[in-house]
Computed example of a mutant assay.
Amino acid sequence: MEQITDFLYRYKNYNFAIGPTTAEYIDSLQSFDIRNSDIFLVTYPKSGTTWVQQIIISIFELDGSLTKYPNNFEQMPWLEYKVDPQDYALRPSLRLFASHLTPVLMPPGLKDKKAKF
């Protein structure tokens, strides 16, 4: 991990914000257990991610699937920023995740499962 500014570090040739994630956590995503019912919103930064995130959350709230979580960040957490110490494996299915990670850094299980993204 190489710090490039007061707010950014570079890891595996990608830039991350200092604080909400660590190199160890990014590496741990390689063993992240993907479920067939998982839904991933994977986008480029500044491409309307929050807007689409709200649409997806609204669809599943109407279905009654997301009544447990009080806000958008908890309903559809960012995969690369584990701010809450909650273990994602304990979340009931239907799990929603948002991410700006590139395919190289995403969990490799996405290729083998039927998760939607």
Rank of each mutant, 00 (worst) to 15 (best):
E24A: 12
S93W: 05
V42Y: 06
P107Y: 00
F97V: 10
L105P: 05
L105N: 06
E24H: 03
T67G: 12
D84E: 12
K116S: 13
H100F: 15
Q86Y: 02
K113M: 01
V104F: 09
F73C: 10
D27T: 00
E61Y: 05
P108F: 06
K113Y: 05
G109M: 03
N15Y: 11
R91E: 14
F97L: 12
L29A: 04
Q30N: 14
G19P: 09
M106A: 11
V104R: 13
I56P: 03
E74R: 14
P20M: 11
Q53A: 15
F73Y: 14
M1L: 09
Q75C: 11
Y9D: 01
Y69M: 12
V42S: 14
V104N: 07
V52G: 00
K111V: 06
L79G: 02
Y25D: 04
I4N: 13
A98M: 13
T50F: 09
I57P: 01
L8A: 01
A115Q: 04
L66M: 11
N13S: 13
E80L: 08
Q75P: 02
N36Q: 07
I55N: 10
D27N: 13
T21I: 11
E74P: 01
K46I: 13
L8H: 12
L110E: 02
L8F: 14
D87H: 00
F32W: 03
E2C: 10
A89R: 10
Y88V: 02
T5M: 03
T67Q: 12
L62I: 01
I4G: 14
P108G: 08
A89Q: 09
N15F: 01
D6L: 02
F60R: 03
I39G: 03
E80D: 12
L105V: 05
K114F: 07
F7C: 06
D63K: 13
D27K: 03
A98E: 15
L8Q: 07
N15R: 03
L8P: 02
D87C: 09
A89V: 06
L101Y: 06
P45A: 12
T50A: 05
P20F: 05
N71K: 06
P45G: 09
Q3C: 00
D84H: 14
V42M: 04
T5C: 05
V104P: 05
Y11T: 04
F7N: 13
Y11G: 04
L41N: 14
E74N: 07
E61I: 08
N15I: 07
F16Y: 15
Y44W: 03
L66G: 11
I59Q: 08
I4T: 15
L8N: 00
T43G: 15
M76P: 04
E2Y: 10
